[in-house]
């Protein structure tokens, strides 16, 4: 029915597209299983991985698509389309367009993010940054001021040491802020 070249094209298309459909079907199945068992997705995936032979399933899905596409193309050719036209149409119709797998995954991540989102954490992080920067600035400037020799020296060249002290203090403050941010993020992760 089809030329050798066309058979190869169909095979290639099925090889590219079938895994997406298979992934979607597996995700839907896992979603059902997860709702049923109440287990986390990662646990369900791990369980499934033990039982299935991935390559065999993928090959079957690919073969199913080859046959499905061929049947569709034959139908189109009976309606008057050329082999190439039928292939182009079938390719367009059977190209994977997910409304579920990828977007559902993204939605799940967004949902998880907002589910764990606590405005108090962000307020605390901001306050830590502010507090450490002010503390660093004050302590650094003070050490610089005293270290330079006090008020009299400040008016000549001592202000440079005060300035350096203030800048180093700000940098230490930002560093401390980053550390407290990291501690809060790690605590939330647990």
């Amino acid at each position: 029915m089809f030329s050798h070249e066309m058979k190869e094209k169909i095979k290639q298309f099925a090889k590219e597209q079938a895994p997406y459909y298979l992934e979607e079907a597996e995700m839907t199945y896992m979603e059902k299983l997860r709702r049923k068992t109440g287990e986390a997705k990662s646990k369900v995936i791990a369980k499934l991985a033990k039982f299935k032979s991935r390559s065999e399933t993928a090959m079957e899905a690919q073969n199913d698509m080859i046959l499905y596409m061929s049947d569709y193309m034959k139908d189109l050719m009976e309606q008057g389309l050329s082999e190439q036209e039928a292939f182009e149409r079938a390719k367009e119709e059977l190209k994977f367009r997910s409304e579920t797998t990828k977007s559902a995954d993204l939605q799940e991540r967004i949902f998880a993010y907002y589910n764990n989102f606590d405005p108090a954490d962000y307020e605390a992080i901001g306050l830590f940054y502010g507090a450490f920067v002010f503390l660093g600035l004050s302590i650094g400037a003070l050490i610089g001021f005293i270290g330079s020799g006090g008020w009299e020296m400040f008016l000549s060249d001592g202000w440079i040491r005060t300035l350096i002290g203030a800048v180093v203090g700000v940098l230490i403050g930002v560093g401390m802020g980053l550390l407290s941010h990291a501690v809060i993020v790690l605590k939330r992760k647990k």
Partner: peptide, 16 residues
């Protein structure tokens, strides 16, 4: 109904 819908549905029926 898009042709792809039925193919995808059959994979799901098999998986389920």
């Amino acid at each position: 109904i898009a042709e792809a819908t039925v193919y995808a549905l059959l994979l799901r029926l098999e998986k389920n």
